[in-house]
């Protein structure tokens, strides 16, 4: 059942992004930026956490999950340190994703050449 939920929710998020791109004719970068910001806002409204609860990876793997993780991390540290926590908590929470992107990105650039 967890797989079905992940499939449907993850798929729906992608379908919404695709619809937004096709209907507004915006370029992919703008859609990705909007998606990640939408995730942060939904997280602030307290809507994204239940979605993660419900769909697991279906909600964390798409980009809005990245915005949600940032907000969650900021608020977690802020609970302890106040405003200062916003500075420390965000990137701590997304560190794994970002550092993996840099490390694996660099590794792949060393190993492979673009095929065109």
């Amino acid at each position: 059942m967890a797989y079905v939920k992940a499939f449907v929710v993850g798929g729906l998020l992608c379908a919404i992004a695709q619809a937004a791109m096709d209907l507004t004719k915006a370029n992919p970068a703008i859609i990705m930026v909007s998606a990640v910001s939408a995730g942060a806002i939904l997280s602030g409204l307290g809507l994204y956490a239940p979605l993660v609860e419900f769909a697991g990876a279906g909600a964390t793997i798409p980009l809005p999950g990245f915005g949600h993780t940032l907000v969650t991390g900021m608020l977690e540290d802020a609970a302890q340190w106040g405003l200062f926590g916003i500075l420390t908590g965000g990137f701590k929470a997304v560190s794994a994703g970002l550092l993996s992107a840099v490390l694996f990105g660099y590794l792949m650039a060393v190993l492979f050449n673009p095929k065109g």
Binding site: A6, F7, V8, G11, C14, A15, Q18
Partner: peptide, 17 residues
């Protein structure tokens, strides 16, 4: 495009799950 995005995106998330 929307249908394809749904299935491929869903599939990737299922793998993640």
């Amino acid at each position: 495009n929307i249908v394809v995005a749904f299935f491929v995106g869903g599939l990737i998330c299922t793998v993640g799950q």
